[in-house]
């Protein structure tokens, strides 16, 4: 694996405010890195430094072994970048914008033709190529922004909130595109949509107040959730009381929550002590007691939960110890 991006001790200060605080990580070819964090946490600033738009206060950024402050042009050539909100020249048409980008990037006629055909096909913008960008819908604008970022087949693709403002189908398409493109490249996306991280990213970095608070693959991040290995049970309301009693008496069960309650149906969630696996013992106990259930499943954990745990502390926010989607539904 070749390392395409290497960041060491990156810090960016705006006067007294530290936007990015001693961030270090590297990204290899083939990785799709999800950059997640609350608004204003320094995601965009980090991306702006990597793309050479901003200069770091201290620390180094190397793309393909070249230092970003010393070889800005060479690095800009290798990067494809979609800035936040996909700002584009409204008076241009997508085709003239793409041609402009290809010219600036010094693509040959052949490469320009191939690059534009590829980007247009992948992002389904063929039907709007000759309309002024300012007349396009938000989804099309975003896709034109993505097209200009991939038209030169960059080694490193940096996308700041690429699916923001897209409808579910468009989001799906963009995610498919990212997966498909990741093979030879490295992709970095920033997002607040955690399902996106699960769907496309091979690795996630959580950043809060400019500091990195986690760097792991989405699965192991999920396992840090308090709900990891919890067992969810859906059963008829008549059986609920017996089941709760049974679970409370069971070793390894730390807490039982009622997550959904209707007249006929109840959903329970049994949280395990130290996130250990309890499915087998729960299953056996249910059989022994002859409790009738409709569904049993193991919770892998919720990224949202982990995200909140990781970022609340850094942001200095008060956290309700029971704050999670389940409790609020109960």
């Amino acid at each position: 694996m070749t390392t395409l991006l290497d960041i060491r001790g990156l810090t960016k200060k705006y006067g007294p405010i530290t936007a990015v605080d001693d961030v270090s990580f590297s990204v290899d070819q083939g990785e799709v890195l999800g950059f997640i964090g609350p608004n204003g946490s320094g995601k965009s600033t980090t991306m702006k430094i990597v793309t050479g738009f901003l200069t770091p206060t201290s620390g180094t950024v190397e793309v393909g072994g070249l230092d970003v402050t010393r070889h800005p042009l060479e690095i800009k050539r290798r990067i494809g970048y979609l800035p936040e909100g996909a700002p584009l020249y409204g008076d241009m048409t997508p085709i003239s914008l793409l041609n402009f980008v290809c010219k600036v990037r010094r693509l040959s006629k052949e490469e320009t033709k191939r690059g534009i055909e590829y980007a247009v096909e992948k992002l389904h913008i063929a039907n709007v190529l000759y309309q002024p960008i300012e007349t396009l819908s938000k989804g099309y604008k975003r896709r034109v922004g993505l097209a200009q970022a991939i038209v030169h087949e960059p080694e490193l693709l940096i996308l700041d909130e690429p699916t923001d403002g897209l409808d579910p189908n468009q989001k799906h398409e963009v995610r498919e595109l990212l997966k498909e493109m990741s093979g030879k490249k490295a992709v970095i996306i920033s997002t607040h949509i955690l399902e996106e991280v699960e769907a496309v990213c091979s690795r996630a970095i959580v950043i809060a107040k400019g500091k990195m608070v986690a760097d792991a693959d989405p699965l192991s991040l999920q396992s840090r959730s308090r709900l990891h290995n919890a067992v969810g049970i859906r059963l008829p309301a008549a059986q609920a009381q017996a089941c709760i009693e049974m679970l409370n008496g069971l070793g390894g069960v730390h807490q039982v929550r009622t997550t959904v309650e209707t007249a006929s149906m109840v959903e329970l969630m049994a949280l395990s002590t130290d996130n250990s696996e309890i499915l087998a013992s729960v299953h056996t106990a249910i059989d022994e007691k002859g409790i009738q259930v409709n569904e049993i499943y193991v919770e892998r954990g919720r990224l949202e939960d982990v995200f909140r745990d990781l970022t609340y502390a850094v942001e200095g926010l008060q956290q309700d110890p029971d704050a999670n989607p389940e409790a609020s539904n109960a």
Binding site: F53, P72, L73, Y81, P83, E84, G85, P87, L88
Partner: peptide, 14 residues
């Protein structure tokens, strides 16, 4: 104002 400066200045041009 429109933010296109970020698009422009991250192209390989000084």
């Amino acid at each position: 104002k429109s933010g296109t400066i970020e698009f422009l200045l991250t192209l390989p041009v000084t």
